[in-house]
Design a protein around this nucleic acid. Structure first.
Lengths: 243, 243
DNA sequence: CGTGTGTTTGACCAGTCTCAAGAGCCGTGG
DNA sequence: CCACGGCTCTTGAGACTGGTCAAACACACG
């Protein structure tokens, strides 16, 4: 349909030059492949609910989430939204070859974004095969997540969808070195609903449902403890039947 | 969830060396960037229903569809399938860095696949930034399509989903130089259903529904003529509300 | 011309959406 | 410190879509 895409990536699949941005230190480490440009990156702060960029905006930068989080979504003609992805610290947003942002970003909480000049990134990737290759891997990683999303959203029933979502968020936790059993859900129920193709009411009901079944424990509105992950896996039967 | 992904691409976003494969002629054209390896590619033929590869198979080649078509899907633990994509002549299947195929391919009709050695493609991409860069663009293109799929499958209601699907297939037709008004649907209704997250019955009913509304005309089981594309666009309200 | 597969159609039912109201949480201001 | 207002989340009841099961039909193949 409409060309709705962009790239987001985990920092650890990026070239070393970009990894050096990770630390707040003024870039003691350089690699010969990547000249100075990355180091000039400024940081912008956004309040909860603000839109760092909207679909159609000219895209001059690639953003790296420093703290907080983003909801990435498409606005549809009928007023609905399709949440494409969430971005958390370490994720990159806005890679790809389009001149304009293909979707809108909204800050989930107070969020800091580091701005990486897009053109220079592109120039470097054309000069250095290692960078281009890394970008390719990054895109492939993105694609993996996108297919995972298709799989999750393609689940029949609200239980399967939400279970798959919780497990996916749990895996993200692991990725950030957090406890896989306690899932942090900073986004609104509405965002989860628009991500899964459900309504906020159904999401809420399904949470209550899981709680009643003893599958999860709702610590507070933003934290869920997974009590029976195996049961959740069974519900989210999006497990490739190998062979 | 599970690492279910792979790359497929349109030929025209590939490096020139790969484009030369396009013609059946024994590669009169070479580009200095790409040495001989591409030229050795053999062609394998598959009957309707056969599986060129399955998820978990060791992945030695990247395949280019010469004729026919493929359904790419994931088998789920509960016996259901999630169709990830369809591949038609000119499309590449199996890019990406995984050692094994992440999903299964099934021939829609009699299908010819050209086999491109995967390791050599990778080696070349590491040596030549242009190839790596092209692969990156390709992956970005794939991602665009994946997000489009999310959008389509995320539609509420069967009419929106099917309308979006028909329009997407129509655009593919244009891409191949065919009439955008007559959509060719070589795949099974079941495959369309598993692509959209519906059942075959619902897909069938919705087709009948569209026909009754005068939106489409069913030429034969594999060809649909779009009578009121604008109405279909309205149904598939997956149109980014710009601004 | 039969057989098997794929497709259409029908009836019934489960599940989700819609609309609506109430409960909880948080920041603000008195 | 408490009261207020707004927003989010939860819960409820009814309508409706799409899933399931079952059967008839159409088509391709040998």
């Amino acid at each position: 349909m409409l060309p709705g895409y962009a790239l987001r990536c985990r920092m650890n699949v990026l070239p070393p030059c970009l990894n050096s941005i990770k630390s707040e230190a003024p870039a003691a480490v350089r690699c010969e492949a990547c000249p100075a440009p990355w180091m000039h990156c400024s940081v912008r702060k956004f309040q909860k609910g603000q839109y760092p960029f909207s679909q159609g905006d000219a895209q001059g930068y690639v953003y790296r989430v420093q703290s907080g989080g983003l909801t990435l979504f498409l606005s549809l003609a009928n007023g609905r939204r399709q949440v494409v992805d969430f971005a958390f610290p370490g994720d990159l947003v806005g890679l790809g070859s389009h001149r304009q942002f293909q979707f809108t970003a909204q800050a989930i909480t107070r969020t800091e974004l580091r701005c990486i000049p897009r053109d220079e990134l592109r120039l470097q990737s054309l000069k250095d095969a290692r960078i281009a290759s890394m970008l390719y891997e990054t895109a492939a990683f993105q694609l993996e997540e996108a297919y995972d999303h298709i799989l999750t959203a393609g689940q029949r029933g609200s239980e399967g969808k939400l279970a798959a979502f919780l497990l996916a968020m749990s895996r993200r936790n692991v990725h950030h070195g957090d406890d896989p059993a306690v899932v942090h859900l900073p986004m609104l129920r509405t965002d989860i609903a628009d991500y899964l193709g459900l309504t906020a009411e159904t999401v809420s009901r399904t949470f209550t449902n899981f709680k009643a079944q003893g599958l999860i424990k709702i610590v507070d509105q933003r934290h869920v403890r997974l009590i029976e992950p195996r049961s959740l896996v069974r519900l989210a039967n999006a497990i490739a039947a190998s062979g």
